[in-house]
Each structure stands twice: as structure tokens, then as C-alpha cells.
Amino acid sequence: MSQIQWLGPHDPFPNPLTEVDPDPTVPGLMAVSERIYPGQLARAYQSGIFPWYSDNQPVLWWSPDPRMVLNPQNFKCSESLKKHIRHFCQETQSEIVVDADFGAVVRACATSNRKDQDGTWITHEIMDAYTTLHEQGHAHSIAVTDDGQLIGGLYCVSFGAMVFGESMFSYESNASKLALAALSAWCLQNQIKLIDCQQETAHLRSLGASPIPRIQFLEDLQSSLNQTNIERPWTFDKAILNHWL
């Protein structure tokens, strides 16, 4: 059994395409670092690796097998959600806002109470690292607002034609689903084939996500990184939700 590697500021990540999990007792854990070093987060995503850890832990870098993904065309828009979309689109004070206040969306995701979960993995270090990605054009927020107030949303990462979903939150029923429905419709418009959901949950499965082998995800990622036909900067509004009606 090989040892899990501690990464310094300039150390490369293990390649999950060619290297097996270093410790089979912790499947998917590829490496550890003392903190998230400058440039490290971008390199991780382009290698199919993401951070997931708690405040009292070092930074843990993961590439799980299988990998949970959502093909945007498989997004499950239930009849009740379609009804909610119709109402949302008719309300003049309701909006979908892209990249207007990234920090507010990330903070909302970090502070939202979640069933069966104590605390949050979205530490201050995570917020700072993803804010840097946002400033570089690689992290995005989709906010659902009502009369200017934030009621739900999500944030994600994007390299090439791959979108990596990170976290969602809702202050009102279905608000995060509206954000994911809008993102899925935008991905379809831009020929983006996968939204990475990282790890399997019943909630993600209910929205149309499904697991695929890690090697398939990594191969799809490598082919997606070179695609440059994606709309930049990201711009869309709630009218995009009409795709599901």
C-alpha cells in the first residue's frame, strides 16, 4: 500500500487516471496538504480532484469512484417544479442573477442548515480560494432573488466545457432547484454534457444525477478541457427556465 502524499506549494497532484487510490481504506482520497496553496485549486479541478474537509483537518483532496454526475438533459423537472417555474417567471420581482454577488451565495451555502450535517466544509479558506477562482472567471454563482432578496442559489466551477457543481442552498421551497434548472438549461445551450456532482446523494439522484466510473469521468473531463466555444462571461436570466416548460 502506497502512502498518501502530502503536497507542498508546487507539488503536482497524483493522476487519478493512472494511479490507484493511495490508501484503499480511504477510497477516493488522493492527497493531503497543509492548506490550499495559490494556483492549487485550479490544477486540482483540471485533474478531476476537489477539496473536501473540515476546519479541524488538513486539506483533503478527493477523486471518488464512482463519480456522481448530472447530464443536463436528464435534469428531472417534476410537474410541481414546472408549476413553480411558471409562477416564478410571471412574478416581476423574481429574478435569476448570475455572478452578481459570488461571496453572498458562497456564504449562504456555508451557513445553511442541512439535515444530518453538523458544521460545514465551506471554511474561510475555501471561500477565499473559490473567490480567487471567481475573479479568474472559473467560478460562478447563480442567485435566485425575490424583490432583491436572496432566497436560494448555487455556486460552481467551470473549466473548458466541464461544470463542477459545488453547493446549493434554499431559504424558500424549490429555490435551489430553480438555480439548478437554470444552470442545466444554460449547459444545454452551450453543449455542455456533464455537471459534476462529486458524490452520490439521494437528493442529487432525485434531480436526475447518476454515478459513472471515475475513469469515464476523467476521460470526459480531459476531452472537455480543450473546448473553447463556451459563452464567456456567463450571462442568462430567468427566461432560460422556459426550456423546461
Rank of each mutant, 00 (worst) to 15 (best):
K83P: 01
H84K: 10
L154C: 15
S63E: 03
D147F: 06
Y53G: 08
N71H: 12
E219D: 15
G160C: 05
I126S: 00
T120Y: 04
A108W: 09
K177F: 11
C77P: 01
A42K: 11
P211F: 02
H134N: 12
H138Q: 15
R114D: 05
Y45S: 08
T235S: 11
C77F: 03
E166S: 14
A108F: 07
S80F: 00
A182Q: 04
P51V: 01
P16L: 09
A182K: 11
L81K: 03
A44Y: 03
W244E: 05
Q5T: 14
P22L: 05
A110E: 01
R67M: 10
D11R: 02
A100P: 00
L204K: 00
E95N: 13
K76Y: 11
W121L: 07
C187L: 11
Y45W: 06
I4Y: 02
P64E: 01
V97E: 11
Q90L: 00
I240R: 07
W244A: 05
A185M: 02
Q73G: 00
V163F: 13
S167H: 11
V20D: 11
F50R: 08
V106F: 14
L29T: 11
N74F: 06
E135N: 12
D65M: 03
F75E: 00
V144Q: 10
A239I: 00
V106R: 13
F217A: 03
L188R: 02
R67E: 03
A185N: 00
Y45K: 13
Q189S: 07
F164G: 05
W6R: 10
G28S: 02
P233E: 07
L81P: 05
Q227T: 13
F236Q: 09
L221M: 06
K177G: 11
V106W: 14
S167R: 10
L17V: 04
L188N: 01
S47V: 00
I195N: 05
F13H: 02
P16R: 04
A44H: 01
N226K: 15
F75I: 03
F102Y: 15
Q117E: 13
L178V: 06
P64V: 08
P38L: 06
T145Q: 15
Q46Y: 04
L194V: 06
E172F: 02
T25M: 12
Y37G: 01
V32T: 09
Y171C: 07
Y155T: 14
Q73T: 10
A100V: 12
V163Y: 01
A129S: 15
T145D: 01
I126L: 03
L241S: 11
Q136V: 04
M30Y: 04
V59R: 09
I142Q: 10
T111N: 00
T18M: 05
N74Q: 14
P27I: 01
D220R: 15
E219V: 08
N56E: 15
M1Q: 13
G208V: 07
H10M: 10
